[in-house]
Amino acid sequence: MSSPASPVTTEKPSAYQDLARGARACLPVCISVAAYGLVWGVLAGQAGLSVLEVLLMSGLVFAGSSQFVALDLWTGNPAALPIGALVLAVAIVNLRYVLLTATLRPLFASRLRPSALAAIFVATDENWALTVAEMRRRPTGAAFLVGGGLMIYVSWLASTAIGRLLGAAIDDPAAFGLDFAFTATFLALLLGMWRGKGDLVPWLVGAGAALIAARLIEGNWYILVGGLIGSFAGAVFETRARRDRLA
């Protein structure tokens, strides 16, 4: 990936070069981010979010998978909004971000400055992966992360808002089978997370636990019950399999 304009050197590039390079690297990713954003925006309208609420959630939370999960818990009636469950679900789905941002620590000075606390806000799965790959290739500054992050931020905010506005044109979602769009989207998101056989245990245990919990517990708690038990089982299975391989 070396072009004449950006020769591979061991010299640390300027912040501006890093910013531009990060933005350019994220360009293809932005297209798929926007596709997900459109779908999320349409579903958000069905879930009862206003345009302003879409902009606020996309702009402030800025974490795709957790926003999808939040839609399942959202209600159009403000008095019935399960605020505690929403915050808990979003936090649990996003908990893995501590692993991502921890690996970005070398981008910043040994004493964290306020700019670092601002930069980390735009860390997502996509620009994290690109930044970590770039850090392995050459000296990289935090601006690389920010360049990609800003691109993703703009495309997420714009596409979710556009999706919400387009979705508003649909009067009766169930009449067109659009109520199934939620399930279909979650299923596709799930399949997109497949990394190998190690995912089978957490998915099956999570699904089974959720089916049982949905019968026993009132409300939407089965999502978190299934998610926590399933991921726990996946971790048990994964660490045991690794130990067996080493033994």
Binding site: V93, D199, P202, W203, G206, I223, L224, G234, A235
Partner: peptide
């Protein structure tokens, strides 16, 4: 494993 398990549970 949390995000995948949460989606499966959904």
């Amino acid at each position: 494993h949390i995000p995948g398990a949460v989606l499966a549970a959904l």
